[in-house]
Design a binder for these strands. Sequence first.
DNA 1: ATTAGTTCTAGTCAATGTGACTATAACTAA
DNA 2: TTAGTTATAGTCACATTGACTAGAACTAAT
Lengths: 214, 214
Amino acid sequence: MIFALRPSERSGRPTLWIPLVRRIREPFKGLWALPGGPLTHSESLQDAASRNLRETTGLAPNYLEQLYAFGGLHRSPTQRVVSIVYWALVQPTEAALADESENVRWFRADRLGELAFDHNSIVDYALWRLRNKMAYGSIAYHLLGEYFTLAQVREVYQAVLDRELDPANFRRQVKATPEIEETDQYLQGGKHRPPRLYRFTGRPGLDPDNRSTP
Amino acid sequence: MIFALRPSERSGRPTLWIPLVRRIREPFKGLWALPGGPLTHSESLQDAASRNLRETTGLAPNYLEQLYAFGGLHRSPTQRVVSIVYWALVQPTEAALADESENVRWFRADRLGELAFDHNSIVDYALWRLRNKMAYGSIAYHLLGEYFTLAQVREVYQAVLDRELDPANFRRQVKATPEIEETDQYLQGGKHRPPRLYRFTGRPGLDPDNRSTP
DNA sequence: ATTAGTTCTAGTCAATGTGACTATAACTAA
DNA sequence: TTAGTTATAGTCACATTGACTAGAACTAAT
């Protein structure tokens, strides 16, 4: 499953969106589902996740991590299925390149209808994990482009954590993390004092896949 | 993989141990490996982990959680294998009941030799996760019995995090967590002031398996 | 040119949490 | 009775955090 930031229809503020694909056959024909596909013999789990993502949505995420292996007995009514679910964060520029069509569409992550299989609870779990990671790690930056203002970072946190944050205090915290690099650039064009642009210099890497790939 | 607390051979202080099984056929015949086994069609992932654990070691852990799905291409030299690894914490009384034999033995988690397959890196990852969880959540108590002293909790932390902790400060922190309940019991028998016994009243539950089992 | 409106940015201050440390309490063993 | 040991309470300096104030730097309107 893929998370991306898109402006809300009403407020215009950035909110979390995910792409879903419509099922074109039974079971759950017509319902929306998470993109996915089979694992072949010649690819690792992560490679398979990447490939399935690209084939169904055209997306190539820069951040991809294993979420959880779901293997309950009755996930599918027709057969036993074990799904090893990955989740990804994509930057806005990448997200804009996604192939939207009759059967592939973006939805607000917090306003989904009934999905196929157990995909609602998978999304719930992913959202929970995302909020958790956000609270500690420096994961928010993978939802942004290379250069960003501190206000944009704050908007990401506000969108995911769903609460307001004090601009001054938030700025103090972010500036204290060594992975954030100040640039000499300023973002022009707003009708107010132009904010400084920053860069993220850290690496994601926590998973065993990312640590020891021979 | 199973973690349990056992007294170190030399110092007598509690340290982390895990049970391993010896491979009796190729590949890696003769080497030690993590206990495991196949997933059948009629059991969930967690049930399969439980059953395989019981069958190979006789253990019935009270804390069992999914660790990670390992699916690299060359994990086994003979065939493609995807392992969905679970990890468990068992209390000392339970650990003592494990079936030890010629082909099942306990090892100190920080002093393992070369294991079969990629099991060394799996253990490393599990240790890393364990330390992480310990730093935040209240997971240490699943390695202890129902009643314990604060010094025992501290020894668990010291064993896992591998550093000394100030007794007074540690006590202050633990007493601040609401899940720890003071009892009227004291542990007699030491050659010093008898420490008060405490109980853990929290529940583990974070995994999707533990949250939404229908 | 001046002013109002906006956000950016740098501070202050009180409350809280943490690490290092001291001191006393309560037991056992000699 | 005393020495040895751990349990437990408390102090103090320091860092972190949340709430808040104020000035800086830009745009848009007058």
